[in-house]
Write a protein that binds this DNA or RNA. Structure first.
Length: 160
DNA sequence: CGCTTTTGACCAGCGC
DNA sequence: GCGCTGGTCAAAAGCG
């Protein structure tokens, strides 16, 4: 992963968080290929979940099939990190530990019930924690061009 | 006209 | 048993 501090012109969106997912959807094709990346992210999820964990089953002694959760921290000015899929915001809640509200997004796919939640750190506004829930079973219909740029501006922290 | 976003309320689960 | 936090859904408004 390359740590590029340049992320100013990467996002074509002006400043609103609505136009990104609504009118112009960018594309990519990396997440599915970055299994190793997800693995690390999965590990990091545990640590992050300690803060945002709610009612989900624990890691041990679970009988039911838990949905894969991938959490990663991203350095971005914008909360909305377009990964190529269409996301519909279905809720927003504020967490006590964070002064910033957490946004809940859901994939608007037909049968694709992938959920995504974005949370910012109170300490560092520039750090955005994105947690993906579920796996996309639908191919991406867009180009990787934009996501490649986004990846460059993404600094994945793997302290574990 | 369609789609997405927004805010509030409700429900569920867990803790004490 | 009650309270609290977190999560989800619902209805309405705005924008493209």
């Amino acid at each position: 992963m390359e740590n590029n501090n340049n992320y100013s012109m990467l996002f074509p969106c002006p400043s609103s968080s609505t136009s990104v997912v609504g009118s112009s959807h960018n594309g990519y094709s990396g997440l599915n290929n970055d299994h190793q990346f997800e693995k690390r992210v999965e590990d990091a999820r545990d640590g992050i979940l300690s803060q945002i964990n709610v009612s989900d089953n624990k890691k041990k002694g679970e009988k039911k099939a838990r949905k894969p959760r991938y959490a990663f921290q991203t350095r971005s000015q914008v909360d909305i990190l377009d990964d190529g899929y269409r996301w519909r915001k279905y809720g927003q809640k504020a967490v006590k530990n964070n002064k910033f509200p957490r946004s809940y997004y859901r994939c608007t796919h037909h049968g694709c019930n992938v959920k995504k939640q974005v949370q910012r750190l109170t300490k560092d506004e520039g750090v955005v924690v994105t947690t993906y829930e579920g796996v996309h079973t639908h191919p991406i219909e867009k180009t990787t061009d934009n996501f490649e740029h986004i990846l460059n501006q993404m600094q994945i922290y793997t302290p574990f």
